[in-house]
Design a protein around this nucleic acid. Structure first.
Lengths: 204, 204
DNA sequence: GTCTATACTTCGATAGAC
DNA sequence: GTCTATCGAAGTATAGAC
């Protein structure tokens, strides 16, 4: 069962390069494009090297997720008690690729047992941190008490992620209005999550 | 360029069966599982028959989307001026597989040029119908005029779809609160989009 | 640590027999 | 209308040479 196959060390230089490059590849082309061949080619390595460092492609994906989620969590948690926690939260969602990718991960995890636990764990951790950031913002600005912070958190982050996906295919109906409404609810200016001019869906 | 290859008629019995079965397959296992072999096997046909009816797998996918979206649009548009338009809208989102699948389609469309136009078109049409349903509801119940109907539409449908995806991996934090808040905003009871008991994420 | 060689699987797509 | 046969591309993964 458990193969005795040689495997590269965790702190290996190449292993780290693979993880970093994988994240870029994922952001650009999505999960389906993350193959050993695709990835290794970008670093001018043979594709088998991926299997030297990672037992399976799922393991690679988990490593990528661990890497980027711990980074993002650190940023978000560090912002919770800052002057402007909401700004950081929203900034993290402005990278449209990241916002779309997180939903892609969750969909993927629904079909891949190996991915479910880690993805669920980070999703929970993220929601908790986001919730604290939003709560802190609402308190700090003394905003209408019957605005339930947890619900607002879910709505805000859901909307950002769906809008990111829709932007990529040129759907924009209601985006402006949604962001404007969220802005007014939170008394916080929210601009379009990527100006629509920088990432347009070219008409074929 | 344009091959002279024989292709089955649009109203062929088998073609329709393929489309129907494809939708079931998609709902159960997602886009990545939709292969000619997977699909044909379910109907005890040889996999090449798929290429007899569809020039490419993208074409099959478009046919599936055409089929199910026109059906859903008819239902939704028929509900707009009914007694309870919101009920129909929400009912359509209760099928968690469908809600999750629609987002999966949009993500997929972002990377597949051939899918972009049809998916964008249906997304726009759907939003328009949803918008009218929500507007009608708000008017009918004389709900607070400074609740922007288009923004509410986007929020409501985004939330439903993200919650469906999260449910599938066992993430539930904030779901109850979000639905409760939406219920209160819309003066309309919204229950959990699949009671969490019928579609639980089994712990591996 | 990285490579070549290789095995096995699954996929999309076409041609041609029946 | 459906089948068999087949091609070629791409995927995961392992073994072993260097």
């Amino acid at each position: 069962m458990a193969t005795t196959r040689r495997r590269g060390k965790k702190d290996s230089k190449t292993r780290i390069r693979l993880i970093d490059e994988a994240l870029i590849l994922l952001s650009e082309d999505g999960i389906s494009a993350l193959s050993a061949r695709n990835l290794a080619q970008r670093l001018d390595l043979s594709f088998q090297i991926v299997h030297y460092y990672f037992k399976s492609m799922d393991d690679l994906l988990i490593a990528v997720i661990d890497h980027c989620m711990t980074g993002l969590l650190t940023i978000l948690e560090g912002a919770i008690d800052s002057d402007n926690p909401l700004e950081t939260l929203i900034e993290l969602h402005k990278g449209q690729a990241a916002a779309a990718l997180s939903l892609e991960f969750e969909i993927y995890a629904g079909r891949r047992p190996a991915l479910r636990e880690p993805i669920k764990r980070y999703t929970d951790l993220f929601r908790q941190a986001e919730y604290e950031a939003v709560s802190c913002h609402l308190k700090k600005h003394n905003i209408d008490k019957n605005l339930p912070p947890l619900a607002v958190t879910v709505m805000l982050t859901s909307a950002f992620r769906v809008l990111a996906i829709e932007n990529a295919i040129g759907v924009t109906m209601g985006h402006k209005e949604t962001l404007a409404w969220l802005s007014s609810l939170l008394s916080f200016p929210i601009t379009h999550p990527a100006e629509l001019t920088t990432n347009p869906a070219t008409t074929s």
